[in-house]
Nucleic acid binder design. Structure first.
Lengths: 236, 236
DNA sequence: GGCGTAAACTGACATTTGTCAAGTTTTCGA
DNA sequence: TCGAAAACTTGACAAATGTCAGTTTACGCC
């Protein structure tokens, strides 16, 4: 039974406060809501491909998405994992170029697609939205400078520890003892976040298990000692 | 004899067309020009330190600047090299956080400092400026996704070849036979761009010399075969 | 619940890159 | 122009990580 696409109103969105639109004027918000399209994507479905032209932006209502770039040998480098409340695809729209990355669902995901013209209209009518977006883009650049430095200078072990601590937030984990929720990512995806070979990644996960930093159930990774992970990661 | 700081008017700036301000209304431009400060920095002078608070933005009138982040072991990762016409420091200002990076002159450099309030005023009075900045930030994020993927996936040799082709533009080189202008960077800086050890970098430069891709005179690197360098770099 | 395929895992070995130490050359400031 | 310091260079060896091949486990579908 294929899941029906929902009709979600922005004003009533349960994750609205996590989005750029949280402080938007109600009239602008309902206006933008009227022309959007809500779609349920299955797990491992590509939302957009690197090299295609953006026609609008996507707001994530539910689920998680990997943003990745495919290198010359066909291997993927995961740049970011987005979750509910995040806006996706707006950068390529602003730079008036093709998507420099691809986007693929990591689990079943509901996306609201806002056509370019409606989004630009909202941007013009609400100067606070512009400001939020500039601020967010600037923070993203700061984060990426961090990522670049980490990749250039830290060994794989430290990078994996750092990635796991980051994923605590992405998966909304409490990291409290007994918490059975976990990070559900293939080892290949995790290796593509860290920037290493899958086998190397697996070996280090084994080490972390031996050291009681994590536990696994099937593919799921449970964080057992967040503080120590952060120390291993050499986070300031 | 210490060099005097010049008084440069934005309306008459020789690199104005390379800046964000090239299409700005003359009245806004002169207004902004009135409250700025022009300063000559010597080679190897730090303009701002990572962790400090921005009070405005810098526009590069002349010279080159390395933007770098210092890792946990004290080694620098050069994120970007900026040249005349580039604007510097605006991202931290927008994100309302401390500079996530440091900036240091690579040669004698003239900078125009525009106080935050004047810059924000200009931004408010010229919506095209906002748009240019959003566009530029978005392109920068695309470039950084590239850099991240390159660092994760390409071997050092390819990365060096890519860095050298990028520096052709930064140093305004023609790459025409007989051109005696060159890239004047320490081997340590070049290694910090590529993300490798200085010795590894030097060995590869030696290889490139043997292969007639480059020539050196003292520290200066002359590009001899740009097309082949691009092929070595596996650039699309 | 069973099956098949993909993903996860492991061991052995190869390759790439880094570290260390010492010597040579270039740069820069007085 | 000179001298000292910084930068460049080279060789030897170590460490980190990747590749390859085979085995085991997990997941998704019927």
């Amino acid at each position: 039974m294929k899941r029906e696409n929902p009709q979600l109103a922005c004003e009533k969105c349960s994750v609205k406060d996590s989005t750029f639109f949280g402080n938007m004027e109600l009239s602008s918000l309902t206006c933008m809501s009227e022309n959007k399209t809500c779609t349920v994507y299955k797990k491992n479905q590509v939302v957009f491909h690197e090299g295609t032209r953006p026609q609008g932006v996507f707001c994530i209502n539910r689920g998680r998405i990997k943003i990745y770039k495919t290198g010359v040998e066909g291997k993927d480098q995961i740049i970011q994992i987005l979750k509910s409340g995040d806006l996706m695809g707006y950068r390529a729209m602003f730079s008036e170029e093709q998507y420099p990355v691809s986007a693929e669902t990591l689990e079943e995901t509901t996306l609201c697609f806002i056509p370019k013209s409606d989004f630009m209209e909202a941007l013009s009518s609400d100067p606070k939205l512009s400001k939020s977006i500039i601020k967010s883009l600037s923070k993203d650049l700061s984060t990426m400078a961090d990522s670049l430095t980490t990749l250039a200078q830290k060994p794989v072990r430290e990078r994996l520890a750092g990635a796991l601590t980051m994923l605590i937030d992405t998966y909304d984990l409490d990291a409290i003892e007994g918490d059975t929720e976990g990070i559900n990512l293939t080892r290949e995806d995790l290796a593509n976040i860290v920037g290493t070979a899958t086998e190397t990644l697996i070996r280090l996960l084994h080490d972390f298990k031996e050291e009681k930093l994590i536990e696994t159930q099937g593919r799921k990774i449970m964080i057992k000692n967040k503080e120590k992970l952060q120390r291993v990661a050499n986070l300031a």
